[in-house]
Amino acid sequence: MIGLEVLLLAFLIFCAAAAILCRRLVSAVIIFMAYSAVMSLLWFLLESPDLAVTEAAVWAVVISLLFFLTLRKINGLKGMERDEED
């Protein structure tokens, strides 16, 4: 059990560092989604199912969607540019 928890926590820290360090914003947001999913799993392990449901619904869905929409709007000028394809 402790092993699983430590593994998940390490993955969490790895995801956080990767989301900050990675260059493309789209990948950063996707990594952040993975981070939220793992976080909601951890809350199940902490016996707080209320938090887990909220986290999964809110962060992994709504917030990521808002990030994506913002990026899409911001990439309006970037859209015609060939090398950045999502």
Binding site: P49, D50, A52, V53, T54, A57, V58, V61, V62, L65
Partner: peptide, 25 residues
């Protein structure tokens, strides 16, 4: 379901509302 059973099972207004919002999206 989550909203209506907030006082009986895990969940409640905040979680159920977020799920409903995702459903509307």
């Amino acid at each position: 379901y989550i909203v209506l059973n907030g006082h009986l099972s895990p969940g409640g207004g905040f979680s159920g509302g977020a799920v409903l919002g995702g459903g509307l999206i």
